[in-house]
Design a binder for these strands. Sequence first.
RNA 1: GCGCCCGUAGCUCAGCUGGAUAGAGCGUCGGACUUCGAAUCCGCAGGUCGGGUGUUCGACUCACCCCGGGCGCGCCA
Length: 554
Amino acid sequence: MKAVLDVLRAAVADYCAAESIEFDPAAIQIEPPRDPKFGDFATNCVLQIASRAKRKPRDVAGAVVERVLRATDGQGSVIAKAEIAGPGFINFTIDPRVWIRALEAVDREGEQYGWSRAERPERVQIEFVSANPTGPLHVGHGRNAVVGDVCARLLEMTGHTVEREFYVNDAGKQIMTLGASVVARMREARGEAGTFPEDGYPGQYVKEIAARLVAEGVLPSDEPAAVRAIALRAADVLKAVQKKDLDDLNVRFDVWFSETPLHEGGAVAATIDDMTARGHIYDADGARWFRSTAFGDEKDRVVVRSNGEKTYFAADMAYHRNKFVERGFARVMNVWGADHHGYIPRMKAIVSALGKPADALEIVLVQFVNLTGGRMGKRTGNMVTLREVIDEVGRDAARFFFLLRSYNTTLEFDLDLAKRESSDNPVYYVQYGHARIASLIAKAAEKGFSPPHFDAHFADVLSLPEEVSIAKKLQEFPEVVRTAAALREPHRIPFYLMDIVGAFHAYYTKYKHDEKVVSDDREKTNARLFLLNVLRHVLANGLAVVGVAAPEKM
RNA sequence: GCGCCCGUAGCUCAGCUGGAUAGAGCGUCGGACUUCGAAUCCGCAGGUCGGGUGUUCGACUCACCCCGGGCGCGCCA
């Protein structure tokens, strides 16, 4: 690829010098064309030069191609063909053996293939899920969890240091509402009179927790301190349930950050003082306001209400000061449900007020999930618990399906499809590809073959177009990972896996009679085992990034 | 009313941050196992890329305006 680029740049530089056109050869890029029939690489640089110099594109292209061909006339060039196409593209076809030779690195890097070093490594904190400890997780949290988790894995894979955090809102009014709900259910369980709070949590789980507390001899009470103590007991139980759900989804956190200490330790008050000293907070109408409009928000936000209570937003301010200042993260990511998008400007305002660039806080907004099929009929995701989905379709299918759409589009989650064990189901399709290769290798072992490491002469043996095509795709993997990480778009990984595994299935079926992988031809058998073994590693690495198993057998 | 996301084949979605004749899968229909895994593969059909202006050599992609769907606009958390 670099060899092609060098030749092209030299040719363009020569042409531009001869025609006295100003153009920086460094700006020239080559990329794989959309359609493989256009060759291995294409460049559109001629179109840019021609439009700037007011020449006809095809004339310019002709002159450049002539120079490229002259430069590659001798032996030893990887460029097999250079031709003009369409409105003025230059397409390059390279010697197919180059793609096979490049597998040397894929083989050598093994489990590390796809990992890379960042140009500027960062210490990134990513906060996700952060569900209130007032109930079980629902499907929306599941999507949030997997998107956040895979973003974290992708960042680690590209050389960043990542800390995963779950923020526990255990200080606000909703925790007292939980407490009041439990107290009411405790009275019911004891056969006492009482009414259930209007805004209470109606779930069955509240009754179960109440029953447990009653059994332990805890007495219901309306004393705020008692209600809070009961609430915290309930929250602990619910937190454990959430943790178990996440664990079963293969999602784990480094830090469970509780809101309460921010209040009790004085961080919220200190943050308000600090912001006041910097002139970002003012008094009006008996309340204290954060001047977020100074940083682009549409209105200022209350941090202390006129009744003296600090708002949830005040705690958020302290929490993000903790992230950026106390803990010194240069980059902070928050994964939120789409319904929170209105909070972005005020959160960015906090960051700006702390003297950090607003870009240092990234918000990933995950759209909603609609469930279809299964036992649930059609329902929106926040009615169905994550637990039900994991139990019904399994961890691997759940994770894969959550990643199957870009997170800024609503996800239609088909439970029937996710359960199906056939190629309709993308997760089985990919896993089956991995298992099928493992099985082939096992079969070969029975005949005394084991997958070899790279050998240069494979380039002469692996000459079927499908083999070259698979080799090419294998080399895209690190770039796919880097792009997915840089754009925070985890869905690119499953799409890549489906693409390359499809190429394998097609290759396998097409040649299963005439050009078998394991045959009497030792050279071909070894070369093909090498190719498939490398492919298996890439599939395993790709499945590992998305946290899905790569089975040997299914 | 204002703001964010979405609108691409009958359905579900990609489209590499401006490139060539817009791609998959599912579904329909028709094919392929005496042989390394048929949990697979091959083929046919299917499109005014929601509509319109503009920028550009070139627009699914960028800008603006409409239309349609989802979500949000508290001294709630």
